[in-house]
Computed example of a mutant assay.
Amino acid sequence: MAASHTLHATCVAWDDRAVIITGKSGAGKSALGLQLMALGCKLVADDGVHLMLENGAVVVQAPDTIKGLIEARGIGILNAQVRGRARVVLVVDLDQSEPARLPEARFFEVLGHNLPLIYRVDAPHFAPAILQILKSGWSDR
C-alpha cells in the first residue's frame, strides 16, 4: 500500500502545480485559498488534504466528504471549481511571519520529501507571488 498522510490545510492549484496552505484555525487558510482562486487557481481541498506519493512526487487530493467545498468565514460554505489531484510544489505556513526581504530556502518534510516552504508575508503581493511560484517557480539568478 502506498504511503499517505492527511493534513489540516487548504490547497489550490494552477494547472497541475499545487500549494498547500497550513496554519491554525482562523489563520486565513481558506481566505488565502479564495484569493488565489480569484486569480485563476482551482480548489483542490479546503480544511483537509490527503497527500500521497505518486511517481516520486507528493500528490494531493480532497477527501470525498469535502470535495468542491470551501468555507468563507462569515459568509458560509461555497461551491468551487475543483482540480481533482495535483503535484505539490509549495507549502505556505500562515502561523509564521517572514522577517527577511530575501529569505533563505526552507523546506517542509512530508512522506520523505522536502517541499519548498514559505512563511506569511503581510503585503498585497503575497497571493500574486504564490501564484507566480505556481506558474514559473523561483529565479536561479
Results as ranks from 00 to 15, higher is better:
Met1Ile: 00
Ala3Pro: 10
His5Leu: 15
Thr6Lys: 15
Cys11Phe: 06
Trp14Phe: 13
Ala18Tyr: 05
Ile21Arg: 05
Ile21Tyr: 01
Ile21Leu: 04
Thr22Asn: 02
Thr22Pro: 03
Gly23Ala: 12
Gly33Trp: 03
Gln35Asp: 13
Gln35Lys: 11
Met37Tyr: 08
Met37Ser: 06
Ala38Ser: 15
Gly40Asn: 04
Cys41Ser: 01
Cys41Trp: 01
Lys42Ala: 09
Leu43Asp: 09
Asp46His: 12
His50Met: 12
Met52Glu: 08
Glu54His: 08
Val58Ile: 13
Val58Arg: 06
Val59Trp: 08
Ala62Ser: 13
Pro63Met: 13
Asp64Asn: 13
Thr65Gln: 13
Thr65Pro: 06
Lys67Val: 05
Leu69Pro: 10
Ile70Leu: 09
Glu71Lys: 01
Glu71Asp: 12
Arg73Gln: 08
Ile77Pro: 02
Asn79Pro: 06
Ala80Gly: 04
Val82Trp: 02
Gly84Ile: 02
Gly84Ser: 07
Gly84Trp: 00
Arg85Leu: 09
Ala86Val: 11
Val88Lys: 10
Leu90Cys: 01
Val91Glu: 03
Val92Asn: 05
Gln96Val: 12
Gln96Cys: 07
Gln96His: 08
Glu98Thr: 03
Pro99Met: 02
Ala100Arg: 08
Leu102Met: 08
Ala105Lys: 07
Gly112Ser: 03
His113Gly: 00
Arg120Trp: 14
Val121Arg: 14
Asp122Asn: 14
Ala123Lys: 11
Ala123Phe: 06
His125Ile: 10
Ala129Glu: 10
Ile130Trp: 00
Leu131His: 11
Gln132Ser: 11
Gly137Glu: 04
Ser139Arg: 09
Arg141Ser: 14
